[in-house]
């Protein structure tokens, strides 16, 4: 069967497409469209982090700051400046890229945890501006976001779909696009250079790779992914609050990418799916929710150090081998 498929990238994308196409068949209610839309949007941000963490080996504790920039670009642009939503999305991504470049350029020449503390500060600054500048951002209570017009577009095309279904399809397509970009990057010369840094920076340097430059590329790209994810979240929710840029959200994003398997796009998506659905599933446990979430995070990190998906894949391989 393998030989009929052109490449591993295409295989992964087809698998994703199949999941997205088949999942609605088992949805008990339209609420699940919303959950899957959130998974797709989170996964887009997490794929950006996979590029940063998995390909370049850098950790960011402030990526929600970029999500916040994207989200508020889509809140502020149309409301205050009359920009069309898609242009606001692009401008938000451009702003995030520029800021990532400014912050990353001096700091990524260094090794270690510096990016972590610098991005931590960056995220807190972004959230602080969003909270304090009420005239522009609505302050801590947030602001409404203008409609993207997706639903009316679909209606104009003569299709009968609910809002939740329209967003499910749209966010799924955006996820496929993000995955395609990341997978292609992985197999490109840039991607190979990046992964060589992850393995050994000194070795990469000795074979003539400009380490700082490639790390910067990874950081800027991940900021763009985060910003686009933030814009989509704002457009989907039609409402934003500064929580979206908060430290807790940053931690959730990093956790998603590490839990699933930081070096793989599919792992990132699995992590996003796990951490987006967990709070919904854990509502059954009421007060024990937080405790169980913490335990699951620790458990996966301790017993599956490569992440959930690579670990399960290995285990499957092993059982297959023993069964043979």
């Amino acid at each position: 069967m393998d030989r009929f498929l052109p490449s591993p990238t295409a295989r992964i994308l087809l698998a994703l497409l199949a999941i997205l196409a088949l999942a609605p068949l088992v949805f008990p209610s339209t609420f699940y469209y919303r959950i899957f839309t959130l998974i797709s949007i989170n996964a887009i941000v997490v794929i950006g982090l996979v590029i940063l963490l998995g390909y370049a080996g850098q950790i960011s504790l402030g990526h929600a700051g970029f999500v916040g920039l994207g989200a508020y670009a889509n809140a502020i642009g149309p409301t205050h400046l009359g920009l069309p939503p898609l242009l606001a999305l692009v401008l938000g991504a451009a702003l995030s890229a520029a800021l990532a470049w400014l912050v990353g350029r001096p700091i990524l020449k260094l090794r270690g945890l510096y990016l972590a503390v610098v991005t931590l500060g960056f995220g807190i600054l972004v959230q602080m501006v969003l909270v304090n500048e009420s005239w522009l951002t609505g302050g801590p209570d947030g602001m409404a976001v203008e409609d993207l017009g997706l639903v009316s577009l679909v209606k104009a095309l003569g299709l009968k779909m609910k809002t939740a279904q329209v967003w499910y399809v749209f966010s799924g397509l955006m996820l496929l696009l993000a995955a395609w970009v990341a997978l292609n990057l992985r197999d490109s010369p840039t991607g190979r250079a990046l992964r060589s840094l992850h393995d050994s920076e000194v070795a990469a340097r000795t074979v003539g790779i400009n380490v700082a430059r490639y790390k910067l590329i990874a950081f800027v790209l991940s900021a763009v992914f985060a910003s686009v994810g933030g814009s989509l979240l704002a457009l989907f929710n039609r409402f934003v609050t500064p929580d979206v840029a908060g430290f807790i959200h940053s931690v959730e994003l990093v956790t998603m990418s590490v839990l699933g398997g930081a070096a793989s796009v599919l792992g990132g998506i699995a992590g996003a799916a796990l951490l987006t659905t967990l709070p919904q599933a854990l509502t059954v446990f009421h007060d024990f929710e937080t405790v169980i979430l913490g335990l699951i995070m620790m458990g996966v990190a301790i017993f599956m150090p490569d992440g959930l998906l690579p670990n399960l894949a290995n285990r499957a391989k092993r059982t297959r081998r023993t069964n043979r």
């Binding site: 956790t255 335990l295 699951i296 995070m297 620790m298």
Partner: peptide
């Protein structure tokens, strides 16, 4: 390890 300590803090 960072995730473990963050998980521990949540726990």
């Amino acid at each position: 390890l960072v995730i473990i300590t963050i998980g521990a803090s949540i726990f």
